[in-house]
Design a protein around this nucleic acid. Sequence first.
RNA 1: GCUCAAGUGGCGGAAUUGGUAGACGCGCUGGAUUCAAAAUCCAGUUUCUUCGGAAGUGUGGGUUCGAUUCCCACCUUGAGUACCA
Length: 1016
Amino acid sequence: MKYNFNDIEAKWQKYWAENQTFKAENKSDKPKYYVLDMFPYPSGAGLHVGHPLGYIASDIYARYKRHQGFNVLHPQGYDSFGLPAEQYAIQTGQHPAITTAENIKTYRRQLDQIGFSFDWSREVRTSDPNYYKWTQWIFIQLFNSWYCKDHEKAFDIKDLINVFEESGNANINAVCDNDTEAFTAEEWRNFSSEEQQEILLQYRLTYLAETEVNWCPALGTVLANDEIVNGVSERGSHPVIRKKMTQWSMRISAYAERLLQGLDTIDWTDSLKESQRNWIGKSVGAQVKFKVVSNEVKEAAEIEVFTTRPDTIFGVSFMTLAPEHDLVQQITTPEQKDEVDAYIEATAKRSERDRMADVKTISGVFTGAYAIHPFTEKLIPIWIGDYVLAGYGTGAVMSVPCGDERDYAFAKHFNIPIPNIFEGVDISEEAFSDKEKTVIGNSDFLNGLNYKKATKRAIYELEKIGQGEGKTNYRLRDAVFSRQRYWGEPFPVYYVNGMPQMIDVEHLPIKLPEVEKYLPTETGEPPLGNATVWAWDTEKNEVVSNYLIDNETIHPLELNTMPGWAGSSWYFNRYMDANNENEFASKEALDYWQDVDLYIGGSEHATGHLLYSRFWQKFLFDKGVVPKDEYAKKLINQGMILGNSAKIKSLLVGLPYNKNNVPEIHPIKARMSFYSKNLLPDSNDWFKDEKIENEIINVILKDIPDNFDKIFGKDNPIANQLKGKQEPEIIKFLKGNLVFNHISIHVDVNMIDGNDKLNIDKFLEWRKEHKWAIYHYENDNDFIVSREVEKMSKRWYNVVNPDDICIKYGADSLRLYEMFLGPLEQYKPWNTAGITGVHSFLKKLWKLYADDNGLKVTDATPTKDNLKTLHKTIKKVQEDIENFSFNTSVSTFMIAANELTAQKCTSKDILEPLLVLISPYAPHIAEELWEQLGNNESISTAPFPEFDASHLVESIKNYPISFNGKMRFTMELPLDMSKDAIEEAVLANEKTQEQLAGRTPKKVIVVPGKIVNIVG
RNA sequence: GCUCAAGUGGCGGAAUUGGUAGACGCGCUGGAUUCAAAAUCCAGUUUCUUCGGAAGUGUGGGUUCGAUUCCCACCUUGAGUACCA
């Protein structure tokens, strides 16, 4: 019998599928255990070896829990709405549903091949109408809810309407928009229906409002804060600008405090909790009102500021408003108007990125207006400055230069006085901001108080005169929920007189309409604007043609779609009852499964998915839909598997791009790589060789003028001058202006051999596809290869496909090797060569059970050594699984196999339980040998072997004998020997005397069972 | 700048409460088998060494009989975040 892993793996994968081995029941006498993976977005590229890492870990745990007698729910599905399928649709016209279905097929094949124990009967796809029906349903629930601060809970909007009818909004502590105005019950009743709806939108947990959003022109859509990285879009790195738009938003800010508190109740990694805490950004302080004096302001204007240091209020020597602050125009004096306007214009021009990059430059303008200090009634000049952000707090600060570094720098720069209000502190050089050491002075009633007491007192005094109150501020913003895209969940919303109306839940799902093209319409509406059947008939309760819109019974439907995180914010609940057509999930299923016991996924979702999903869970909990307000008890982040990329030095040819007088090289897209040792050393010499220069110019000319933008890049100002010119003119221009630079460019790793030599034939073939022109290389040695470890990605050509590994070594080898690479949470590089280690372990394991003559296993009584090896292994593997230290249990298996082989063990009593230990890691080989041993049932529910400590009891210990802490030799002594006897025996040893060389030991430390240390 | 994590052979990594540093595997070296290769098996593999030993876990200090492990300072790398008042 040979270890034919391909046959064995195919056999058992088929068996598991046919017998539905891993189907979980919603009722059981066994305790439940829910192991969840973050479901994948099915991209066109398929899986690479980095993707299954977390799935393998969770699968091992799920299988382990089954061996332990749990009823395990281990589902999988697809986050199948999203940008790439849509971008592909725009390019090819292929419907995203078709692309998505194809990609899912590939994913499923690849996942099946690795032998996961998923319960596929519960598969979900966020783009499936039967699924997004309930995403729409949740949206409607959010729309029909408001948040009460007194109860810290969401309630039905009807309750709020009742309150409004009885007493207006004065006495209700609800979370609402900042600019919501007060009204009485009588006023409420006199409002028109539209006015009432508009007010209610200011309270609903999802609402339509004109807000400043992050608009990404290249993607043609808005983005949430977590979808922007370093000022550019997460996908594609396109610039993002601020823009006012009417958008759906989620009032996640209502849950800020609960999202923060909830973190203490769940077992997630500290770094992840810390990210969420930072993102929520709680700060405790006070809101203070400053009255404004200005000739320009007829009515008494007030500036509200938020501060975490109300104790320093007597140190205020100026105020600063964000340039975008609403009051700026009102309060600016005529003398200062020109200067202020110029400043506002200048800041508006700066992109988000510029502003972020440059935090050192101090800038600002005096408005000419003054505020009155609430206690001293002194006049305080009001400035504007771009270090104050419109988006945080109130967009205005009280500036205390003696206590805040930025205020200090601003005051110094503009020669504003810096009064000192700290006792015993020198502020002539820098601000003093150590709260712990603060003692207030020069501050009337705050004198002599520390930070804590002064803060309390200041708030008390402010409240007394009605000019401030204690306040907690959160950085967490409401999340924009509309996307101007096609491939997402449609909103169950139609509009009557511009006011949004929810479609009754019984008519859900509202299916995504067909469109001719997936781009925005000519009038700039989202892609759904292209749909011809996209209006709501309120009588027939169905979607009908747009042409029928009469705004009486037939109304337009919402054209935006939901963002990617909508579907992923609740899918873990759907798995509990995935095929339920009548409910989100049945109460029985929800009550049985409760929540996720173990969730494994990437840390990149820390402030996106993992925050939004906690928000929705808390909301659904408030509504009594789900039984837990945190959905995942424990969460582990698997680290990324990094690829090994190869680069070769290459020459980049470009045109100078003069922006801000910075010479840059814009790459010519048909990259020109060439190689010659002679040409590399000094770039200045490169183009003295006219022959090469002419060759390059010829290549450029070949593509001009048809692909002008493609070659030079869009809007290259210098290249633009060339458009439409005759060839000789272009040549003349190119000769004078080409810029050359040499850089390293990624090439396919498969073209590089083990000695970092480039395979020229493969490379010449490959570069054709990648539009590289090669000039002037003399021999293979001209190509200098460098290596880099980085993220596995198609664009770095360093992707390793699990399919190839499965064919060559088998899924069990892949599973073991992924675990063997290192700790689960750690980032680690992939190196396919190492897989032979685990593969030969499996072969060795197989040989323990069978050889060419068939099965070797006998009924022989196990020896002491056999039992010791087995129980040592049981103990270690069990501990390892529970600590998610899967890499070390693979070593343990190797040691066990090596020992049992050396012991020539054939005993079934040893070899059978060993299979159960290995089966979570390498389930195929375990199932096969389990069957060979005569078992008829799958190994997957066989009980986990029990550890018996008695087999590990030893009578002799090999003591390390160390001198001054350094181990020098070992000595075998009985374990029951007394301390004194050990000391005597060690001192009597001739090696000890040798070490001491005649000296008397000062001290002898004996730790029985551990070590002997002689201090000499 | 701030926050967090991590620095151990040629490489991935191990060392569970402070107690034999380098488990296990890759790679490499030598050998067996083979016409040869693959596969397999055996031995060796931290460094230096006068072959007795000695040094050694980013650097410097400390606590301890004893430190990869605990404490202090610093260096390096990675991740997140950033004018948050």
